[in-house]
Computed example of a mutant assay.
Amino acid sequence: MGAQRGRDLLLKLDQTGSGTFLTVAGLRARQVALNATSIDITTADSAGRWRELLEGAGTRAASLSGSGLFKDSASDAAVRQVFFDGAIRSWQVVVPDFGILEGPFQVTALEYAGRHDGEVTFELALSSAGEISFTAA
């Protein structure tokens, strides 16, 4: 994978559960994390007493955090409503030249900031709440 423009990473929300995703924000700074816990099955009989792990048994999770500008006031309102409702919605995270992560996420943090001589920005954190799919670009 070659160098990519970070500004092309998009965040899309399915507001109604219809499978139609609307772009709500372009993120200026962001981090996508994929994690998996492991299950240790090491015993006294393990070869050389090296740790052994149970394949496919851990818990997987995805999280996204980022900051940027909302596309418009309707996008801001939609994300804000999802946060205040504590709702779990389908989201897409489009990473250019890499692929699309899609699945249910909950907004776990939403912060606003702004300077007197600049635009209002936001910071957002999403945590996976179910199975996440990946479609390669």
Rank of each mutant, 00 (worst) to 15 (best):
L69T: 12
Q81T: 10
T108D: 08
A61Y: 02
I100S: 07
S38L: 11
I39V: 15
V24S: 02
L13S: 03
Q31M: 10
F83W: 09
T43E: 09
L10C: 11
T42I: 11
W91K: 05
R51I: 12
M1E: 02
D76S: 14
Q106S: 10
P104T: 01
R30T: 02
Q92T: 03
I39H: 06
A25C: 11
A57F: 10
F84T: 12
D85K: 07
Q92C: 00
T20N: 12
Q4M: 13
S90A: 14
T59N: 15
R80F: 07
S18Q: 11
I88Q: 14
L53R: 12
S73Q: 12
S65F: 06
G68R: 01
L10S: 13
A87N: 00
T20H: 07
G58I: 00
G99Q: 04
Q81C: 04
L9D: 03
T37D: 13
V32I: 14
A33Y: 06
V94K: 00
I39Q: 08
P96I: 05
R49F: 13
L34P: 04
G26K: 04
T16W: 03
R7Y: 12
V107R: 05
Q15I: 06
D45Q: 15
L11G: 05
T16Y: 06
Q106H: 02
Q92K: 11
D14L: 03
L27M: 15
I39R: 01
